[in-house]
Design a protein around this nucleic acid. Structure first.
Lengths: 192, 192
DNA sequence: GTCTATAACAAGATAGAC
DNA sequence: GTCTATCTTGTTATAGAC
């Protein structure tokens, strides 16, 4: 199906050069068709971009849900680390997808900002709550030190974002290799 | 000086809409001049953009150096937290500058990628080393738990990046308010 | 230094043949 | 569904008057 091929190529271009930096002619050329043919599948550039966003968001939702399900029986540290690692691996396995993802959420095209950001904020709020609950259970069972579960969840997610941020800026596997050490620092703390 | 006014307005537009999403006509209009007048001060759009990058980088370099100097006499936790907080405050005090900064380093315009990223990588490497040294001293003096100083420095910087990332996505002061709690989580660890 | 006018071009989008 | 041809608009950039 041509529509799908356009979608895949569009993702690659949008992730590398952004919405404004990508032309439909480039996408068409890469697909092997001419520019006007795109309009047989998507009614505008906006429309194509939103389709890519939806595709990527759907994929992410499914993956995240699966990870949360697969780790359900683990103990707290194991589960938190496994979720942590899985999210990094998800983004690393397809750097185009990762770059697109981060670029869209941080710097969406102005005209589409509200359309795009609304569902994401919800997606994020849900995730904070889930992680918070895991910390809460950990505290209740004595596997996590006493403290505010929401603060811990936010720290956890900031650390996750930070690693993803730095992974985007490097081409090597430096940050995936030091994941266990970073986790160890978070888990054990810095205090003597 | 008109050149300076153009620079300030350009920063605002580039940070909100990116390089490709900003036209010289918009900038000129906001400054109160016509589009061709910009060429009396900057020889191209590239040139103007690079001037903004240099301005922002210079400001950041100076600020960071000052912070490192001002905190030199503090004890380790105090100093690490103070640097941490200062960097967040720096970006919060001017959200335009923060957004521009992050956007440029994460998603520079493709044609300027190499020009822009080379000096930044160096800027970052230096910072990692400085933070690593502080952790190293902390370990030596027993104020920081025994461990790898470089890993701690990387964790520290990932957390910093993560907070900045999340601050960009929210309009309120949520993340600056919970800074002490996030720091507490990092410093004390999550382990029971 | 700033302006008007304009060149030169690339972009998104549409019409209509096949 | 894909093409060629075309429209319209917006872009960077320059020429030359004031």
């Amino acid at each position: 199906m041509t529509a799908k091929r356009i979608l895949i190529v569009a993702l690659k271009h949008f992730s590398a050069k952004g919405y404004d930096g990508t032309s439909l002619a480039e996408i068409a050329g890469d697909v092997g068709i001419k520019k006007p043919s795109i309009y047989a599948h998507y009614k505008s550039k906006h429309d194509l971009f939103l389709a890519v966003v939806e595709e990527v968001a759907e994929d992410y939702r499914n993956y995240r849900q699966q990870v949360l399900l697969d780790t359900k029986t683990m103990n707290f540290e194991q589960r938190l680390y496994c979720i942590f690692e899985s999210m990094i691996i998800y983004f690393l396995q397809d750097r185009s997808k990762m770059a697109f993802w981060v670029r869209v959420w941080m710097f969406p095209p102005v005209e589409l900002r509200d359309t795009i950001l609304m569902p994401w904020k919800n997606l994020n709020t849900v995730f904070v709550s889930i992680i918070e609950n895991i910390f809460q259970e950990g505290i209740a069972k004595g596997e996590v030190r006493d403290g505010n579960a929401r603060d811990m969840a936010n720290t956890y997610l900031c650390l996750l974002d930070g690693i993803i941020t730095r992974v985007i800026l490097t081409d090597d596997d430096h940050y995936i290799n030091m994941l266990p050490q970073v986790w160890q620092c978070f888990w054990a703390g810095a205090k003597a």
